[in-house]
Design a protein around this nucleic acid. Structure first.
Lengths: 200, 200
DNA sequence: TCTGCAAACGGACCATAGTCCGTTTTTCTT
DNA sequence: AAGAAAAACGGACTATGGTCCGTTTGCAGA
């Protein structure tokens, strides 16, 4: 949990990672990918991943904190790319486009990610670690908040941000699009409708 | 999980409950209340509650399905009262007031419940059981959906319902009001602002 | 009241996340 | 190059939710 090595937002402060630790983390990550690929996220147990990686269980926990952390690491690269895109990529997702357009693009992009990593995202929430503390989420909150303000919203900003983010949450998106049968496309459209309505 | 005896919405279908089973369920519930009162929700383990109630662990699980179910049962009475109030109580919560007023009252009431049962609600989400399947939530969704429609919304209804409900979720409400320091009052006000903005 | 059986009981058992600590390895200093 | 301090290792151990199944019990029909 105190492990900052793999956190997304801030550049790592040259904490001198021991070579064996780094190598083991890589092996664990690779093993985890293999397991997920082979049997889905549910088959990923900490014991199994340790065995598959050929390291002790303690090593897995030291490197990734807990199961959520390991799962998060699996989505790390994708998440990093997405962040890069909305923070500094080309419009409409990145800077340059009007804020509303950027916001709409953000939602569409985020929901697109669910198609790829949805099962992992959902599994992450299974563990006690509360989702508000996930670094990637904080970045998103800040970003969406900023866009909303640029759209002219300044009352109730925090609450509105959560409301906007709500349907993009992996569990909620899955529930709406799959369990309630809305469908991916429709979900994206409806989310945009909602945002437009909110923003005026 | 298949246990319908204690579910909120539908009237129980006279399933002939054996006397010992009913008595045990009561004892378990009482024991659970005692434990929560004494040491908080985190100290409520299934083993402990079984011991405290003087029954076997299996009995606890048969009666309540899982930990979430037991926790839900603890909030049952309060939840039932609230449901009764918004379904058929006096305005502005109940029928008779304009839909927007009812909606605003609903949010305020729901957030008020968090003050009482917040810790339990939050603990319920800790377990795998997904929150969309909780009967009480379904009732709320239906209710809020209806009010929103009466307020003139008919596009993107499902998504908007989730967005509106999002900040009322126990985890989110806790995060906003406590961890981010918004405060209870402010949260209620801001939620209302958001809803008004959404509804026009 | 007796009897058969469906339902409930209970606690041993299992799976799994997470912790602890004695041992091993790396890396820094001299 | 050697030694010591720091960091990482690994696997036994703990806590806990949930399952299983042989045994007991309540209830209906005779």
């Amino acid at each position: 949990m105190p492990d900052t090595r793999r956190s997304l937002p801030v550049a790592q402060a040259a904490v001198r990672v021991r070579r064996d630790a780094a190598a083991n983390a890589d092996r664990v990550l690779a093993a985890a990918m293999r397991l997920v690929q082979a049997g889905g996220v549910d088959t990923l147990t900490m014991d199994r991943v340790a065995a598959e990686a050929g390291v002790g269980k303690g090593t897995v926990f030291r490197a990734f904190g807990n199961r959520s952390g390991l799962l998060a690491a699996l989505t790390d690269e994708t998440e990093r790319e997405f962040q890069q895109a909305f923070l500094s990529g080309p419009p409409p997702l990145g800077p340059g486009a009007p804020p509303l357009d950027r916001l709409l693009a953000y939602g569409e992009g985020r929901l697109g990610l669910q198609r790829v990593h949805g099962a992992i995202f959902r599994a992450m929430h299974g563990t006690p670690i509360d989702r508000f503390e996930v670094p990637a989420r904080k970045v998103s909150v800040t970003h969406v908040r900023m866009l909303l303000r640029q759209c002219g919203i300044d009352d109730a900003l925090d609450v509105i941000t959560e409301a906007v983010l709500g349907p993009l949450d992996s569990d909620t998106a899955y529930h709406l699009s799959v369990e309630r049968g809305l469908g991916r496309e429709r979900l994206v459209d409806d989310w945009k409708t909602m945002v437009r309505r909110l923003v005026d």
